[in-house]
Amino acid sequence: MAASKEKHAKQSCVIPGGFTVLCLKFKSDSPTHHQLIVKEHRVRAEKSTQRPLNRTLFVLNIPPYCSQNVLKELFSRFGPVQSVELCEKPGASESTEPKLSKYFTPAEKEGFKVGYVVFKNASSVTAAASHPHDEPLIVCTEERPVRTGVQKWIHQYTHSFIPPDQLQEAVDSFMNDYDKRKEEEEERQKREAEEQAEDEEGWIKVTKGAKGAKARPHSEAANQRTLQKESKKKRRKELLNFYSWQHKNTQKQHIAELRKKFEEDKQKIALLRAQRKFRPY
């Protein structure tokens, strides 16, 4: 693959590891540029439908001002883009939790990001990976201005207002959903409990059951409490200062403590002396 690009008229910059370096400028007249590093997305284990193999481009080092939309437009020069996903770190997408409404999704960090661009056609991926290095991608153009700085913050502030009814609606729909899930869960537990109950002939059906399916999970705190109770009981049964050797031991212990304290103090003093902490002025 690298060899084929060597023949390209305008050379693309490929580095070991199969990554291609693209040049990204904020404006066409910007004096400096960032390096977008792209590669075809290829992971053995991934089964995600969101990132289909051979149509997904893996993009690194995306500056904070490139939003999903900007990125979509930038890469549409290589072919129609189906979707763009941005995350903070490379890795599997982690949307296992129930979908939250936009008001409740936590704000993302505005740092450099990693992107997965899914093209409609597989050929776009190769086109992007062989894009010449000296033709920069431009983020902010006349027809597609990107808001940054004060403009952006005013925009953000203006759009931070949520109409109460919409918010209420989002809350209600989530709670309905939650209640439904809760009910289902209860139903399931009830069913399992029924299954474990005795049948008419006194037999209990023992099943493995799903993980964490028990009605009430035993907790760590409860475990500890039992342990503590036991050790307390043990201690109560012990006799103190009963035998003469025990008495002697207590005395010995006292002297040992004094000694230890003395040594500690000596150490403190030595340390302070080393730091010249005893010169009053």
Binding site: F19, T32, F112
Partner: peptide, 25 residues
């Protein structure tokens, strides 16, 4: 790799912060 630029020396690839671009950022 964030805000860094790539340098290739022989087969080694190393990265350093892209200082000019950061200042522009």
């Amino acid at each position: 790799i964030n805000a860094r630029s790539v340098k290739v020396t022989d087969a080694e690839v190393s990265t350093v912060p892209n200082i000019e671009a950061i200042l522009e950022d």
